[in-house]
Simulated scan of single mutants.
Amino acid sequence: MRGALAPYVASVVAYDVDLGGPGVHRGLPSTTVTFVLPVGEPLDVGWQDRPGSREQRWSTLSGLHAHPAEIHHDGHQAGVQLALTTTGARALLGLPAAELAGLLLELDDVAPALRHLPERLHATPRAGWVDLVEQALVEALAQHDAPEPRAEVGHALARLTRGASVAAVADEVGYSRRHLGSLVRAECGIAPKQVQRIGRFQASRALVGRVPLADVAHRCGYADQSHLTREWVALAGCPPSTWLREEFPFLQDLGTTVEGG
């Protein structure tokens, strides 16, 4: 990760994975903006249970969302995926993450100055994919003079993502819950309670498959294992056991969590 991008890009990974046959990969909710640049074949992605949202795209950007996406594949996936912080959306794309919330968009819709990336990526050996994308983002960083969000809003988002209650965060930053809610929605497009919910789910996803589900529930602030399972069904479209069976081998091969949509 280039130093200039550190506050704006939470992760970047180049992937080239043989999945053994056609299937559907679940794109799970997260507290970051997802940016995918496929190589070889466009990304066939849409929201689960929303058939009209499915399209093949050579670039996909999506903001925070509380429902899963479905990535259809022919048994092979390759490309670069980034997780942008909400601050990164402003700095690199020139707009608040709120304008991406719940949407699946392309670079032409959001950042036309970066529309060259898919073609350049296709012509670059895999070893150079990450460098190419990072260099393009460093250049984009110099082009935007988007205002930073208020420091207290950034603090609130960080605390909510780590599971703090909305009331506690409002007290910490000195705002009423209503005013905090307005500021958070303006920055990331969803209410503070949803940020907290997705943050807790994201924390649980990092533990599922590594420790017993009852321990995951306890560590991540769920009432019990049943509560954890209900939230997984709501946010991932399946219980943790199904995700482990269908997705975990793929994620181990990849070496990192790939979030679609």
Rank of each mutant, 00 (worst) to 15 (best):
E139K: 10
A142K: 12
P212Y: 05
S182Q: 15
H144V: 10
P212L: 05
S204H: 01
E148V: 12
D171Y: 03
G189E: 01
F201E: 02
Y175R: 14
Y222W: 12
V166P: 11
K193W: 05
V195D: 06
R159C: 11
V184E: 11
R162E: 14
G163T: 05
Q194K: 13
A206K: 13
R200Y: 03
V208G: 03
S204W: 02
A214H: 08
D224Q: 05
G174Y: 11
L141W: 09
G174E: 07
A223Q: 12
L207C: 02
V195T: 06
Y222A: 02
C220I: 01
A203D: 09
P147D: 09
L183R: 15
G174T: 04
A158Y: 06
S226V: 11
H218N: 10
D224N: 15
A170F: 07
D215W: 03
R185I: 02
L213Y: 10
H155Y: 13
C188D: 00
L183F: 02
A217R: 09
D215L: 10
R162G: 08
A186M: 00
E152N: 10
A156R: 12
Y175K: 12
S182G: 04
A223Y: 03
L183Y: 06
R205M: 14
E172Y: 10
E187F: 01
A214I: 06
V208A: 08
G209S: 09
L141F: 10
L157I: 13
R219T: 13
S176R: 14
Y175Q: 13
A158H: 13
L160D: 03
P212T: 05
Q196E: 15
G174R: 06
S226H: 09
V138P: 04
A203K: 06
V169H: 05
G174D: 07
V166Q: 11
A191W: 12
Q143M: 10
S165C: 07
S165L: 11
S204I: 02
D224E: 12
Q196I: 05
Q196T: 14
E187A: 09
P147W: 08
L213P: 02
R185H: 12
G199C: 05
G163C: 05
I198P: 02
S165V: 08
R200I: 06
R200W: 02
C188E: 03
A151Y: 03
E148T: 09
D215I: 01
L157S: 01
F201N: 01
H144D: 10
A168C: 00
